[in-house]
Computed example of a mutant assay.
Amino acid sequence: MMSVRLARGIFKKIPIRNYSRAPCEIIEILESGFETLAQSKSQSLLKKHLTQEIFDKIKTRVTPSYCSTLLDCIQSGLCNHDSGVGIYAPDPEAYSTFAELFDPIIDDYHMGFKGADKHPATCFGYGSDFPNLDPEQRFIVSTRIRCARSIKDFPFNPCLTKKDYRHLECMINKVLKTLCNEHSGKFMALSCMEKEEQQQLIDDHLLFKEGDRFLQDANASRFWPTGRGIFINQNRTFIVWVNEEDHIRVISMEKGGDLGRAYERMIIGVESLAHSLKFSHDKRLGYLTFCPSNLGTTIRASVHIKLPNLGADKAKLEEVAKKHNLQVRGTSGEHSEAKDGVYDISNKRRLGLTEYQVVMEMHKGITALIDAECQAGSQK
């Protein structure tokens, strides 16, 4: 165990934030948390890759500009042993400062993205390149595609002050007001929204909500609801979340399986924002986000799809999904169960391939799942 005197010497330059513990406590908490995690049955990528050697090497580091510690990165994973990943980046510099831990986790999650690899340049392609996945509307209930962006020169949630949240909200809202045609709409700040209106938007699957324990334990819900808000277009098919998990989440939705149409709408929206806002970007990792699972293109394309026959054989469902790099979730997303045979299926890979390749992989994978569902139905 490191002595209190040594801990103070190493962390003496850290400004104590109002949510932080004393520097000498950070080492003690890390040591205790690491030991508990190592002895747990956790299947997280954090436990898998945080070896004693790496832990000892990086536990006293802080990021240059924002003074984030290793505890800021892994606190959520230490508190929640059922985490899938277990680590977040409190600021953009964390990815390089704690590279010995982030790199193998990124490689593992993004399936083969090695330390020397570089994310390719942005290439969206066109939504018209992707035919409707389910023109007869037999399987796909809805399609959603989103991408995340972080504003350059700002840290991520754990390091944002109340002033930062307000500044970001004002800056982003100003640009959202310039959107036109199909993308024009209205911004609503959570701090000015009635509880009933919030709940209705949540029930309609349009709005995020407070209370995610993984984000809370990562200090990503501070000063709630300050700075948080939602922008919705008139048709309720284009949405922008402000300061939820990332500074910006651009979301495009469509009833049925027209992935191409939803994708084209998202492209126009995010490129319109890029004309006025500068985003955090790394030459190797692409667009930088709070969670390493969203690096690179940051794109998550998903469908709610009826798979009652294939879903009856979970092993087969997972086999087909894994073959096409798809992630299977319950109807309400991560940590939920499928209702009436409806699953949330999304692409898993976001890093190391272009936006066009991400959506193409998703398109092919969903087509394969529909074929497998039909085969399972005929055999039954």
Results as ranks from 00 to 15, higher is better:
310 L>S: 13
359 V>N: 00
349 R>S: 08
350 R>D: 06
370 I>M: 10
360 M>Q: 12
353 L>K: 11
330 G>D: 07
354 T>G: 07
351 L>M: 07
349 R>M: 15
370 I>L: 10
346 S>V: 01
324 H>I: 09
356 Y>E: 12
349 R>I: 15
349 R>D: 10
335 H>S: 10
339 K>M: 13
368 A>L: 02
336 S>W: 04
333 G>M: 06
311 G>T: 06
318 E>G: 00
342 V>E: 01
327 Q>H: 09
363 H>D: 02
363 H>W: 11
346 S>A: 06
360 M>W: 03
329 R>G: 09
312 A>Y: 01
365 G>A: 06
365 G>T: 03
321 A>R: 03
338 A>M: 08
322 K>S: 12
317 L>E: 00
329 R>V: 03
325 N>R: 12
340 D>N: 11
311 G>R: 08
331 T>M: 04
348 K>S: 12
359 V>G: 00
351 L>V: 07
360 M>R: 13
370 I>E: 06
338 A>S: 14
343 Y>D: 04
358 V>G: 05
316 K>A: 11
361 E>W: 00
314 K>P: 15
370 I>Y: 04
346 S>I: 02
347 N>M: 01
353 L>G: 00
345 I>S: 02
319 E>N: 13
357 Q>D: 07
338 A>Q: 06
360 M>E: 12
336 S>M: 03
353 L>N: 01
315 A>L: 14
312 A>L: 05
323 K>T: 14
323 K>Y: 09
346 S>E: 04
328 V>R: 05
324 H>C: 07
359 V>M: 00
370 I>K: 04
357 Q>Y: 01
358 V>N: 08
361 E>P: 00
323 K>N: 07
353 L>D: 00
355 E>F: 05
332 S>F: 14
353 L>H: 02
330 G>W: 04
369 L>I: 01
318 E>M: 13
337 E>D: 13
320 V>E: 07
342 V>Q: 00
338 A>V: 11
345 I>A: 05
324 H>W: 12
345 I>K: 02
339 K>Q: 13
350 R>S: 14
360 M>D: 11
362 M>R: 04
334 E>I: 06
334 E>Q: 09
349 R>Y: 07
320 V>N: 06
358 V>W: 06
362 M>G: 09
315 A>V: 15
343 Y>F: 13
352 G>N: 06
310 L>K: 12
324 H>A: 05
350 R>V: 07
328 V>Q: 03
